[in-house]
Nucleic acid binder design. Structure first.
Lengths: 144, 144
DNA sequence: TTTGTTGCAAAATTTTTGCAGATAT
DNA sequence: ATATCTGCAAAAATTTTGCAACAAA
């Protein structure tokens, strides 16, 4: 099984949490996905795929994985949703139409954040910046 | 009672919702406050102040007031919180330490948003931008 | 071994909903 | 007069927790 998901194991070990198939499965389900998923969504995705996993395990695992920085959390319609994000600092561009989350190239932001800090005294987490709007697709294609 | 909260009536009428003392009280409780409040917090604030109001009324009113643009919603530790924001477009600076929400002067952002749009195709809602970080106070004063 | 995790079911929270009566326009 | 809103209580939905068995280190 080390051939099929070679990458899902490494980040777990590197983060100092125990490697369980449940966490690997959760991470795998989230990896490569652009839209964040709620705990319930992850759970049904896994059980639907034939995995036997408890709902509370999903809740706890997501919580833990977010804690160690492997996942980022989002507010999607009042529910907490999770997404596997790049390990480098970045900004989130949230599409309010389709829920797509993309990243903003950091170099575009750095200068601005410096100005912002100088002007307001507010120290931004370069990593926790969420911009709501409409993604390129939804901007050109009038949404449903 | 019409003397004490003269301003809370106007925005309600202007927004096309019915003016009830409950909504006025909710709006008044939120007005001038920098930290967003959850439905439960608003409810206890009101009942604590001697008002008799149902919890579901608070939920429904907050929902409605946010719908018509009188309130903005935030995700505070997984719960939905509301805040009375300026009626002009602005950005939110969220302090992860103390929960303070301040606004970012729009002129600081406009140029950057234009660049961002050109570079990514993403059209930001100038009004729905949340920057997490630490406010000026918490930056200088090491938080608890 | 020893410590961290899982699963299940129960509990705690938060939020929504039905409906009769009250209220704003 | 009439469409909207409130209050109450019940229901729904989401998330957390206790604890014994289990698995990773």
């Amino acid at each position: 099984m080390s051939e099929t998901t070679p990458a899902a194991d490494t980040p777990l070990r590197a983060s100092g949490v125990r490697t369980t198939w449940q966490r690997q499965a959760i991470l795998a389900a989230l990896t490569g996905r652009t839209h964040p998923m709620t705990a319930q969504a992850v759970h049904s995705a896994l059980t639907g795929a034939g995995h036997r996993i408890g709902l509370s395990t999903v809740y706890r695992a997501l919580h833990r994985l977010a804690e160690v920085g492997l996942l980022h959390t989002f507010d999607v319609g009042g529910e907490r949703a999770y997404r596997r994000c790049p390990d480098t600092p970045h900004q989130h561009l949230l599409c309010d139409d389709c829920g797509l989350v993309t990243e903003c190239p950091p170099h575009l932001v750095e200068t601005w954040l410096r100005e912002l800090r100088a002007a307001t005294g507010f120290t931004p987490h370069a990593d926790r910046i969420d911009l709501h709007g409409h993604c390129a697709t939804c901007t050109t294609t009038p949404a449903t």
